[in-house]
Design a protein around this nucleic acid. Sequence first.
DNA 1: GAGGCTTACTTATACGTATTAGTTAGCCGG
DNA 2: CCGGCTAACTAATACGTATAAGTAAGCCTC
Lengths: 290, 290
Amino acid sequence: MRDVARASGVSQATVSFVLNETANQTIPDATRERVRRAAAELGYVPHSIARALREGASRIVVLEAGGLPRGNSLESFIAGLDAELALAGHSLLVSYGSSAAAIEAVSPRAVIDLPAVYASPDREVADGGWIDGMAAHTLTQIGHLAGRGHRKIAVAVPAGPDPLFALMAGHVRSAAQELRLPPPETVLVDDRPDQLRALLDAGITAVAGLHDDAALGVLAALSDLGLRAPDDLAVIGFDDTPQGALWRPRLTSVRIDARAYGRRTARQVLGLPVGDATPAPAQVIVRDSA
Amino acid sequence: MRDVARASGVSQATVSFVLNETANQTIPDATRERVRRAAAELGYVPHSIARALREGASRIVVLEAGGLPRGNSLESFIAGLDAELALAGHSLLVSYGSSAAAIEAVSPRAVIDLPAVYASPDREVADGGWIDGMAAHTLTQIGHLAGRGHRKIAVAVPAGPDPLFALMAGHVRSAAQELRLPPPETVLVDDRPDQLRALLDAGITAVAGLHDDAALGVLAALSDLGLRAPDDLAVIGFDDTPQGALWRPRLTSVRIDARAYGRRTARQVLGLPVGDATPAPAQVIVRDSA
DNA sequence: GAGGCTTACTTATACGTATTAGTTAGCCGG
DNA sequence: CCGGCTAACTAATACGTATAAGTAAGCCTC
């Protein structure tokens, strides 16, 4: 910046004013042009660390994603976030795991802590309405099964703790209530068939997976029993991962407009008006399994 | 730091020396102790942006992962990287997409550009021997098929461009040569069965997937033809993703000690001796499909 | 007892920016 | 022709750190 100042015959302060288009500064267009040209010729690029030191935060947003299921929607969410942040001159960095140190080290403008959001959804966190949307998406999922006449529905959750579980379990209950279905049982499903057998014996005719992997586990167990979706049991996933389409029978799943949620989240954390980026409603991708 | 200096009755410089354990600095233990105590009491935490400004780089390593297949090994690679970097006081941030801006914005100590490594493997890039290892891993994969008596082998690659493709294709050819097999054909596989039909008609008895998703596509197409692995066609994947174990028949795959490669990469980019973290050889996870 | 070496520090500076608080020149109104 | 106002700038400072360069005192040696 000092070099640019020297080259264009003004002070470093003036250069800063021009390049940042600082408000309330009376600088004639001729000077502005001179400064810009010099900056371009010298290949000036702002030193973001220095700027961060001055401003107290860098133009970075950190997404905390440790322990989150890597699915289609996380990927799209990230893409949307990234794109929208880029529009505002910011950029996204994703942290897995040792977040505290990483955040300490970058002084980001904002941190989006998705696992924390999942853990306590009532907290006021910028997520572009992601959490709120989940309720509707779950309703879409369960509604698809109900629409096909299923009344006794179970929910498949993976073995081991899952950050989504508590949140989704509540939504599933609400959805069932709204659809006037009996409250669904929640069953732990890895790919062993015994649990599934018990379910079938209890008269369950459809299973909704917490996410596609859980649903695929059900399909696998079903196959091990010599049975097949959708006739012996309807199975629907959540989040439409590519692997779902590769199974046979192909997995029916719910696709979420996660990209739009990402965009909204970006605008929200930067304090911009969220505007018109309304996410499309969740969409059931009907394939073979339900 | 100034507060700590005041509280312990020394200058800011001395505080810096003590807390950073700067070499060639003669400071008696009594003073050191006083400074440390004051820092602890005041809750001093280094301002990493200021440090980055001074040092010219922050204690961050950026992993560029845009467009990479999200598989088991990427996840493990990241975990290993993260863990080892944390040991050295650094932290990992992952960038998808708009990397240039992000890198500009954090001034990382190092950037690990995996897509670039894939694109031009001869370049000297710190990757912990990842690329070099690939050759051996491919040999393991093809070797498993050869060991089961297969001689006419094809390689399945996904439709669309894939960053791994060029690299792996070469390795597959070398592996075949070493195993005295005829050079494998490379076939584009999405999950439509017609291409696979042609392959079978040509006498191919085994297919190796570029990664598990490619292999799953083959299994799907095979199922669509009313055939089944491993009897009608042996199928082996690469990278042992969780979804492979959920297929029926279960996908045989190759598991790589990506975590160790991550650790090595970390030490390498920080300029530390790589030491004893030798990755375990790739391991064939034998399931049903090959 | 002067010169040199070591210990235990301190002072000062630089990193690159954004912004506040001036400063100078020109113009206008009375 | 003087006071005040505006335009068009500039000078100076602060952000928090790491480190080179200095300094004062004490000790050792010849």
